[in-house]
Design a protein around this nucleic acid. Structure first.
Length: 455
RNA sequence: GGCGGGAUGGCAGAGUGGUUUAUGCGACGGCCUGCAAAGCCGUUCACGCCGGUUCAAUUCCGACUCCCGCCUCCA
C-alpha cells in the first residue's frame, strides 16, 4: 500500500517510507490530565487512531506512543483547589480520558507513558544537553538555548524577529534570550518535585515528549502528530531538544498536525473557556456518532462543532448500520480486504470524508442487491478499519443498554400484531402512536415488526 | 508585522483541466405499505470576485475581497 502524508516540515505531501518497515514508530501528543478532556483532545486521538489502524494493516509492527502529561501547573492548581494530591487528581482524570477513548472506539496505543514515570529519562537528557552546551543553569532553572540549535524555527517556518512587538516574550531575569525555554524548574516545598542535580524541581513541558519518545520508540521516529497549536513552540522545542541530545539531524521524519475544532466559528480553546467535554457529547450521542463527526472533515481542516453535525453523523451511521444489518449473517472476516476506494482514500493523507463516501456507496450497492459476497465483506472490514460498525445493528438501533428491560415494548408490539391481524388498524395505529410518544419507531416487514429508538 | 489554512449546491463536505460534475443530511415527486417506517427510483447540481494561460478552468497562474489559525498555556 502506498501511503501519502502531508508533512508540516516540507509543507507538502510525501510518500510515507518508514526508516524500518519492520517497526514503524509514531508519537502523538496526548492530554494534560487536569480536568475532563475536551473535544479538542478527541480529534487527534480519533484521527491518529485511524492512521494507527491503517499502518497496522500495512506493516507488521507499529509502535504507537501517546503520552499523558500528569505533572503540570494546571494539575497542581486543580489539586490545591480540591485539597488532593496532584497524583490523585492526575490519576482520576487519566482514568476518565481513557474511558472517553474507549467509548470513542479509539484503540489503546502501544505505549501510554506518563511524564512522572519518566523523570529519570528527562533528567538524563537535560544533563546531556547541559554537557553539550545546548542548555544552561540559571537561578535554579535549566533552560534550553534556542540559539545553540541552528535549525530552530524550521518546523514553524519562523525566524528571529517574527514575533509582533506587542506579544513579544519577555526575557526573564534568568533567561538569556527570549526564545529560550525551560527544561527544569524549581518546585517550592509545597509543590510536587523530584530531586535533581539542580535541586528539587519538576520538568518543563516540552522535555517530556522528547524523553518519552526516545524511551518508547527511539531517537529518531517516523511520525510525530498533534494539534496545530503545538507546532510552535512545543514541537519546535521538541525537535531542538531531541536533535541536540541525539546528535542526529532528524527527530521525526513526518510531522502531522490536525486542525482545530471551532464553536460558532470561534476556536475552541482552554484560554477562551469555550471547550466542550468529550463526556458531555457522549452523554447525548452514541460514541460512534461522536467519532463519525470528528472524522467527517479532513483532519487538517477546521471542524465546526455543532449539534446538527452530531445528528447528521447519527443518521449517516444509521444508514451504514442498515446495510450492515442486511449482511449480518455474514461475519466480517478479519482478513477480508477493504475496498480499493476506501483504502486509497485513507492512504491519501487520511482522507476520511472520501472513505465515508466509499462506505456509503458500498452500502447503497448492498441495499440495491448489487453487492457480491466480496463487496459485502469489504464493506464490513472497511468500516472496521475506520473504527465503525463495532456493535451489532440491533444494539445500535435500540440505543442505550443492552440490559434494559424491553418486555413492555415487545408486549405492545404483540398486541398491535393481533390488532392488525384482525384488521383493527385504528387500534394498531394507537399503539404505534403510544410508542412514538416514547421515542420508539416501528418498522413492519415480512419478517415481523422491529422497533428502534427514534433519536 | 511574520508564518500558515480557507471561500464548492438548502446545509455538511471530498475532488477534478473537458467525457456519467463524489458522498451524507434535508426537501420534493413516485414505487412499496392497510397507513407508516425502512428501502428503492427520480427531481433539486455548486464551485468568492476580477484578470491571464488554454481549443477548454471550479480545477493552473496573478491581483482583489472576506474568513480563520499560530506567533502566549492550549489538541
Amino acid at each position: 500500500m502506498r501511503i501519502t502524508l502531508h508533512n508540516t516540515l516540507s509543507n507538502s505531501r510525501e510518500e510515507f517510507a518508514p526508516a524500518n518497515p519492520e517497526r514503524v514508530t509514531m508519537y502523538v501528543c496526548g492530554p494534560t490530565v487536569h480536568g475532563p478532556s475536551h473535544l479538542g483532545n478527541a480529534r487527534p486521538a480519533a484521527v491518529f487512531d485511524v492512521l494507527f489502524r491503517l499502518l497496522s494493516r500495512a506493516y507488521p509492527n507499529v509502535a504507537y506512543a501517546r503520552n499523558i502529561t500528569d505533572i503540570d501547573d494546571k494539575i497542581i492548581a486543580a489539586a490545591e483547589k480540591s485539597g488532593e494530591e496532584t497524583a490523585a487528581v492526575a490519576a482520576r482524570w487519566r482514568g476518565e480520558y481513557e474511558r472517553d477513548m474507549r467509548r470513542l472506539f479509539v484503540l489503546p496505543p502501544t505505549f501510554a507513558p506518563a511524564a512522572t514515570e519518566c523523570i529519570g529519562a528527562m533528567i538524563k537528557m537535560i544533563s546531556l544537553l547541559i554537557k553539550k552546551e545546548n542548555a544552561y543553569e540559571s537561578g535554579g532553572n535549566v533552560l534550553f538555548s534556542a540559539a545553540s540549535f541552528p535549525a530552530y524555527g524550521a518546523l514553524s517556518n519562523r525566524r528571529d524577529g517574527d514575533a509582533p512587538a506587542v506579544a513579544r516574550v519577555e526575557a526573564g531575569e534568568y533567561k538569556r534570550d527570549p526564545a529560550d525555554f525551560v527544561l527544569w524548574k524549581p518546585s517550592p516545598p509545597e509543590a510536587p518535585g523530584w530531586e535533581s542535580p539542580w535541586g528539587r524541581g519538576r520538568p518543563g513541558w516540552h522535555i517530556e515528549c522528547s524523553a518519552m519518545a526516545a524511551q518508547c520508540l527511539g531517537e529518531t521516529i517516523d511520525i510525530h502528530g498533534g494539534g496545530q497549536d503545538l507546532i510552535f513552540p512545543h514541537h519546535e522545542n521538541e525537535i531542538a531538544q531531541s536533535c541536540c541530545a541525539s546528535g542526529k539531524a532528524v527527530f521525526a521524519k513526518y510531522w502531522m498536525h490536525n486542525g482545530h475544532l471551532a464553536l460558532a466559528g470561534e476556536k475552541m480553546s482552554k484560554s477562551l473557556g469555550n471547550t466542550l467535554t468529550i463526556s458531555g457529547a457522549l452523554a447525548k450521542h452514541p460514541g460512534e456518532a461522536v467519532r463519525y463527526a470528528l472524522l467527517a472533515t479532513h483532519y487538517r481542516h477546521p471542524l465546526n462543532w455543532s449539534e446538527s453535525l452530531l445528528s447528521e453523523a447519527k443518521r449517516a451511521l444509521d444508514s451504514l448500520y442498515r446495510a450492515a444489518a442486511a449482511v449480518t449473517p455474514l461475519s466480517a472476516k478479519e482478513d477480508a480486504p477493504p475496498s480499493d476506494a476506501l483504502a486509497d482514500a485513507l492512504a491519501d493523507d487520511i482522507n476520511t470524508p472520501a472513505a465515508f463516501a466509499a462506505l456509503h456507496s458500498a452500502a447503497g450497492d448492498i441495499q440495491r442487491g448489487k453487492a457480491g459476497e466480496e463487496e459485502k465483506r469489504a464493506f464490513l472490514s472497511g468500516a472496521n478499519l475506520m473504527g465503525f460498525l463495532s456493535q451489532n445493528p440491533d444494539e445500535w438501533f435500540k440505543g442505550g443498554d443492552a440490559a434494559a428491560d424491553n418486555s413492555e415494548i415487545e408486549e405492545l408490539i404483540e398486541r398491535r400484531r393481533r390488532a392488525r391481524e384482525n384488521r383493527d388498524f385504528s387500534a394498531a395505529d394507537d399503539i404505534r402512536k403510544q410508542l412514538a410518544a416514547r421515542g420508539i419507531v416501528l418498522e413492519d416487514s415480512p419478517e415481523g415488526t422491529k422497533w428502534r429508538s427514534a433519536s
